[in-house]
Simulated scan of single mutants.
Amino acid sequence: VPRTPQAAPAAPSVSAAVPQIQLIPASAEGALDAAEEAVDLLLDTGRAPGDVLVLTTGDLHPWAAHELSFGEAAYWAQHDAGDDVFYADAAQAARASGRPVVVVAVNGGPASAAAAVLPVALARAGALLIVCGDPKEINSVLGAGV
């Protein structure tokens, strides 16, 4: 019996809108600052804070590190409330719910971090995915993985 090929799990459904992707070139050291500037611009142009999820591939954003010092439960309760910009480690991207805008700071971490997080980030982004990092690395991932 011939097997019917199945669609790749990353393929969006026909009705799913594909978010716009914006690349902001930055070094690993400057990616977090670039992400912060992107968030500030989003908020300044009327985007609600609860619409934005920021993921980091290297060091945690200082807000996330601070909030995690109060425990995982309190940290994720803020995520679930959805009232403010939420910052998370890329390794926890799958746990984060979708938001209209996802910003990814490729600020170091293992070489595979960007490849692992970008497809998840794209799936979580409702309207816009902003990626701050090395354009060559990001384009190779987005070209092959998304």
Rank of each mutant, 00 (worst) to 15 (best):
T4M: 05
T4H: 13
A7S: 05
P9Q: 07
P12M: 02
V14I: 14
V14D: 13
S15P: 04
S15W: 09
A16E: 12
V18S: 13
Q20C: 06
I21R: 11
I21W: 09
L23F: 01
I24E: 10
I24R: 12
P25G: 01
A28T: 03
E29C: 09
D33V: 08
A35V: 08
A35P: 02
A35T: 04
A35K: 03
E36N: 15
A38G: 01
D40C: 00
L41K: 13
L41H: 13
L41V: 02
L41M: 09
L42I: 04
D44F: 11
G46W: 13
R47V: 00
P49Y: 07
G50Q: 05
V52L: 05
V54T: 06
V54G: 09
H61V: 00
P62E: 10
W63T: 01
W63A: 14
W63F: 12
A65Y: 01
A65N: 08
H66S: 07
E67W: 14
L68P: 05
F70S: 11
F70G: 12
F70C: 07
E72F: 10
A73K: 06
A74R: 15
A74F: 10
Y75C: 09
W76G: 07
W76M: 10
Q78R: 15
H79D: 15
D80N: 08
G82A: 02
D84A: 15
F86P: 02
A88F: 00
A88W: 09
D89C: 08
D89M: 00
A90E: 00
A94M: 08
R95L: 12
A96S: 13
G98A: 03
R99G: 13
P100L: 10
V101K: 00
V103I: 08
V103D: 11
V104W: 10
V106E: 09
N107F: 08
A111N: 06
A111F: 00
S112G: 04
A113W: 07
A116W: 00
V117Q: 08
L122I: 05
L122T: 04
A125P: 07
G126R: 07
L128G: 07
V131N: 12
G133M: 12
K136W: 01
E137N: 02
I138T: 03
N139A: 00
G143H: 13
G145A: 12
